[in-house]
């Protein structure tokens, strides 16, 4: 007696359970989808008119993968560019663990870090912004895929560049890519998946590399790539390039008699 059942009932139940389990796994196994990825191109704009909100933002190495991907694209597009370890930069620039951008921009700090590490530019990557576009139709999943539809999205990524040696804001660059996720399903599913973020990253890296190489004639240009992060979204202040420059200028005037 097992589970209070007779032997025959137990065998029947076991066989039924096995059959149901086999059917379930076969159904799930056979039901599948094909995903076709594509990388949409990015629209890139750069300007001296800073629009990156700096304020009380922190300079971090938090989004490791994003920083690695952007760095990879910069090096791919800029043969003369060398990227240093972002943690080495952070530790040299922020001696007491106060990682606010305003600390970095204090008079003489950028120049000191540039001298110590032999680097010229700092690239600060902003947060990835996703803008959801139109959605049409829909697809249901229930032991297979059923329906058809598409949805649009835009990924926007910005970076601000600081000339460390001359302690000045250089450029703001914004890269945006638009992609359409579309799919159709009748048990099997076929999805066209946009690699929108990769497109935006590729565009940003390419433009950063071009800007840096245009700005320096050096054979080997050392840069650091870090991220900007809000410590507290609600208390984040919007500070434009003018305000960033103000911080640099105020620091300069404080030190000059």
């Amino acid at each position: 007696m097992i589970w209070g059942l007779g032997k025959r009932k137990y065998l029947l139940r076991t066989r039924l359970t096995k059959t149901l389990a086999l059917m379930f796994f076969l159904t799930v196994g056979v039901s599948s989808c094909i995903m076709i990825p594509y990388e949409p191109g990015a629209e890139v704009s750069s300007s001296h008119e800073g629009h990156m909100p700096l304020g009380e933002m922190m300079v971090t190495v938090g989004p490791r993968e994003l920083l690695e991907e952007v760095s990879e694209e910069i090096v791919k597009a800029g043969a003369r560019i060398e990227i240093i370890d972002p943690i080495a930069f952070r530790d040299a620039a922020f001696l007491n663990g106060d990682w606010r951008i305003t600390r970095l921009l204090e008079k003489g700090n950028c120049r000191r870090v540039s001298r110590e590490l032999g680097i010229e530019y700092l690239v600060l990557i902003g947060e990835v912004k996703k803008i959801q576009g139109d959605e049409v139709g829909g697809i249901d999943i229930w032991i297979g895929f059923y329906g058809a539809g598409y949805s649009e999205e835009e990924i926007r990524l910005s970076a601000t560049m600081i000339d460390l040696k001359n302690e000045r804001h250089l450029f703001d660059i914004t890269s945006s890519a638009q992609g359409t996720f579309s799919g159709v399903g009748l048990f099997y599913g076929l999805f066209i998946v946009p690699m929108t973020e990769s497109g935006a990253i590729e565009g940003l890296g390419r433009e950063i590399a071009k800007t840096i190489q245009d700005s320096s004639a050096k054979e080997n240009i050392k840069i650091a790539v870090l991220a900007l992060e809000h410590l507290d979204d609600e208390n984040g202040l919007d500070v434009s390039k003018e305000q960033t420059q103000e911080v640099l200028e105020e620091s300069t005037s404080r030190d000059e008699p």
Binding site: M35, Q132, E135, V136, G137, G138, I139, D140, I141, G147, G149, Y150, S151, F181, G183, F191, V193
Partner: peptide, 11 residues
């Protein structure tokens, strides 16, 4: 609506 749901599942 459902597409967004599926997209979120894929994501």
């Amino acid at each position: 609506m459902m597409l967004a749901f599926q997209v979120s599942i894929l994501v």
